[in-house]
């Protein structure tokens, strides 16, 4: 009985998603009902707000040093305390959101565009081109992501731009695979055949028909990917290969707080919390998006 019912539901859902003219409205409606996803989205909104208006929000300047106020533990004047140069940690975390969000979004942009294009070409043309691209992807996959990023950074040298490139290249393979898989499943469907029949060129078919229809898994992957990129970039900075001080990057703030860990816990603790909350929010949103985009997966 219950089995029959669920299978009916699935068919309904499939039918609905095929019929609907604007599936994105439907996705948004489902997403809005997901409390934890909305919670995540709210936190991300807050972070973006902090990043944009950092100058207005931050109680102190980015590099305001006050050598008389070094190592102050959290207090009313300095909510998160101060570091070894007497800089306000809260302010630096607020400014740090600029760096982290920038790294996250640009790195994902790099990997989604490159990986997506590679995957789309491989899936659409198949044959030898597919083989070459996918073997290249296999090779990249054989190197654990963070290690690949480390070796790229070691070749390019540290710095914001290089970190974004390194982290971005590190996750090209997953986008290539996802896009290729959905292109393969779309390639022989009727609307693509129809577009071919009316003489649309390959670029048009890929950009107008295939990419929009394979957006769902890319969006989910990209949301989770921003989280992964922020984490990787912070990790690189933590071992001193990423963004260098005095740029207020959460990972490098954490790293410089490390040597004072025994006596002044707050210097390393708060930047780490900032990373964790950001990643947590992105993960909540990513999970919610996955459920909203593919209701069949929801249990």
């Amino acid at each position: 009985m219950s089995k029959i019912k669920t299978s009916n539901n699935q068919e309904e859902v499939k039918a609905v998603s095929k019929k609907k003219r604007s599936p994105w409205v439907e996705v948004w409606r489902r997403l809005r009902q997901n409390k934890s996803a909305m919670f995540g989205l709210a936190i991300i909104g807050l972070l973006v707000f902090c990043a944009i208006f950092a100058d207005l929000i931050a109680p102190y300047g980015i590099d305001d040093q006050d050598l008389r106020a070094r190592f102050i533990t959290p207090s009313r004047d300095y909510l998160f305390g101060t570091d070894n140069f007497g800089r306000d940690i809260l302010s630096r975390i607020i400014y740090g959101s600029r760096v982290s969000l920038q790294v996250g979004f640009i790195a994902v942009g790099i990997s989604a565009l490159t990986g997506g294009a590679l995957g789309a070409i491989a899936g659409f043309y198949g044959g030898r081109l597919d083989n070459v691209i996918m073997r290249f992807v296999d090779i990249l996959l054989a190197i654990p992501g963070i290690l690949l990023a480390i070796s790229i950074v070691s070749a390019l040298g540290p710095g914001l731009q290089n970190v974004m490139i390194a982290v971005g290249i590190g996750s090209i393979p997953s986008y290539a695979r996802i896009v290729r898989a959905s292109v393969l499943s779309l390639r022989d469907q009727e609307f693509v055949e129809a577009a071919k029949a009316v003489g649309a060129n390959d670029f048009r078919i890929i950009s107008k028909h295939i990419i929009p229809n394979s957006m769902a898994p890319i969006i989910v992957q990209a949301t989770l990917g921003v989280a992964g990129a922020i984490l990787s970039a912070a990790g690189l900075s933590f071992i001193g290969l990423g963004i260098q001080p005095p740029t207020p990057e959460w990972g490098s703030m954490l790293s410089s707080g490390r040597q004072y860990l025994r006596d002044y816990w707050h210097i390393a603790t708060f930047p780490g919390l900032a990373i964790m909350i950001t990643i947590f929010a992105l993960n909540l949103l990513g999970d919610g998006l996955r459920d909203a985009l593919d209701p069949r997966l929801k249990s």
């Binding site: 989280a227 984490l231 912070a234 990790g235 933590f238 071992i239 990972g251 954490l254 390393a268 930047p271 780490g272 990373i275 964790m276 909350i277 990643i279 947590f280 993960n283």
Partner: peptide, 8 residues
């Protein structure tokens, strides 16, 4: 999943 392991 969200906790950076170097921080943890």
């Amino acid at each position: 999943v969200s906790m950076p392991n170097f921080w943890q």
